[in-house]
Design a binder for these strands. Structure first.
Lengths: 290, 290
DNA sequence: GCCTAGGTCCCGTTC
DNA sequence: GAACGGGGCCTAGGC
């Protein structure tokens, strides 16, 4: 029995199921009319309404309305769930310390309670992260600029860890900040912080800073320019067009618009819209619902 | 009927319920063994496992495992949900454009499907935000420093909008950056950005920068010091100890350790642990479950 | 435990 | 629509 459900249960019956489920590590959903109160890092209260509440065995609790991706209220993992009946309400309380915070969900009506046995061993595999961009740069440092030689990643400075630290063709220190997506002013400021910190380590060596990302906003570009920092446009994963066959030694083969290299190669991005058209066609479905 | 549930449905029966629910704006949960594939701003794939899937009428979809607050996969509001049966699987697809991205959940086994009618008009009321801190500062500018006169909020600069802009007792421009919680290096960098931008607007006027937050990390404090910026410790909501009875004209009554005012009042925070002890006692419960 | 930064961040607001 | 910054951000990785 992987899913145990009660329809329109009494508060007491719902309580018994919650007792069991919290005890043996099952995940629980409740749906009904409730109010929610939170006190901790901030304080909030939510009047009555129909919501879906999810309690996870790791101590997470989520309160979802019919809108938005974020729960209207929640508690992160590590909390302790407790349920009780009082004042004619089923109350689910989730608490933790460090920081001290508490979430109370009080149901005046419960439409459904379900306890699920969950078995999930699969790990998510994800591509397109900053980590992928880092690997791409280390595989082919010329993507940053001709002659760039990486020397360290996550190199510590007084202002924090630098993504990629190295030397340019002239032997000057180079600070590289990587972003998986289009960057704004904060990334420019971050790079500036690191460059200033490294500059104090290597006085009079002319430390340089390069922001590597798919694209950059106008204001961020201006901030970079004012501070003598560079931008280079690189996607976290290679575009499908160019074959990245080589084993890391391939140097800037088909850079397209071979413009001025070195400092400023930023062009607007744009999703390119070239969606792979070779997916399964929808008309082949047995049945379809929208 | 606010909740319609199918237990161990056939793919086709589940499909019909999804059809109806997507059509009339109901929220849906599915639980069963599925794989998940995502392609859009990044790309991911997740092997088979038991998960809870939530489809909201606003186009949100969430895939939750038994751990963590964040869904392992998701699609934000604005997407279009479609369901179909093919290859012996029930597939729920959620798509959108700008950016183009698609999420596919393929169930090999469905333990339960439920459609909910949701009515929720209540708005969350939350206290302790940066907005609250801003109001507090505007009510009592002396919390920043004696003689501070706020002149504008969200004042635009070349580097972005400044939280509070004003003058100090000597008539010098002051840039104030507010944070509702303990600040790190990025906040120091943000303040520096703004101060530099304002400095170009008012050359030779000695523009000052003040970071206002509950507390500050050591490294951020160093960064501020190196750049001649100040930190002032203020909580987003007044502590329960001091009575903030006055109507905005109260000036720094009981600041506790009346140390050196003006520049650096940073001490470590600590939640103070003084939880209100006047809540309902647990032993008065009708019934309790942990 | 705190610190630091990334994220398919989400989200509201403004332009 | 893009951009910019807040968030009870969450989460991972170091120390």
């Amino acid at each position: 029995m992987t899913a145990t459900t009660l329809h329109r249960p009494t508060h007491r019956d719902a309580l018994y199921l919650l007792e069991e489920a919290f005890g043996d590590g099952r995940m629980v959903t409740l749906f009904g009319r409730c109010t929610v109160d939170y006190d901790g890092r901030a304080t909030s209260s939510l009047g009555p309404g129909d919501r879906l509440v999810v309690c996870k065995p790791d101590g997470t609790i989520l309160v979802h309305t019919d809108e938005k991706r974020k729960p209207v209220n929640w508690q992160p993992p590590g909390c302790t769930h407790r349920a009780s009946v009082r004042d004619g309400h089923l109350r689910v309380r989730s608490e933790r310390s460090t920081p001290t915070e508490r979430l109370d969900v009080a149901f005046e009506r419960i439409d459904q309670v379900t306890a699920y046995e969950v078995t999930d061993r699969s790990d998510l595999r994800l591509q397109g992260s900053e980590e992928d961009l880092r690997r791409r740069i280390l595989d082919d440092p010329a993507l940053v600029e001709e002659g760039f030689v990486p020397q360290a990643t996550e190199r510590e400075t007084a202002a924090g860890p630098v993504d990629v630290f190295g030397e340019d063709a002239a032997g000057r220190p180079v600070v590289v900040e990587l972003k998986r997506r289009r960057v704004g002013p904060s990334a420019a400021g971050q790079l500036q912080r690191y460059v200033e910190a490294v500059d104090e380590e290597f006085p009079d060596e002319g430390v340089r800073g390069v922001l590597v990302a798919p694209s950059v906003t106008d204001r961020a570009r201006e901030l970079l320019a004012e501070r003598g920092l560079s931008f280079v446009a690189v996607e976290p994963v290679a575009d499908e067009g160019d074959d990245e066959s080589g084993d890391g030694d391939s140097v800037a083969k088909a850079e397209g618009d071979g413009g001025d290299d070195g400092a400023d190669a930023g062009r607007d991005d744009g999703p390119d819209a070239g969606d792979d058209a070779a997916d399964e066609s929808d008309d082949a479905a047995d049945d379809t619902a929208e």
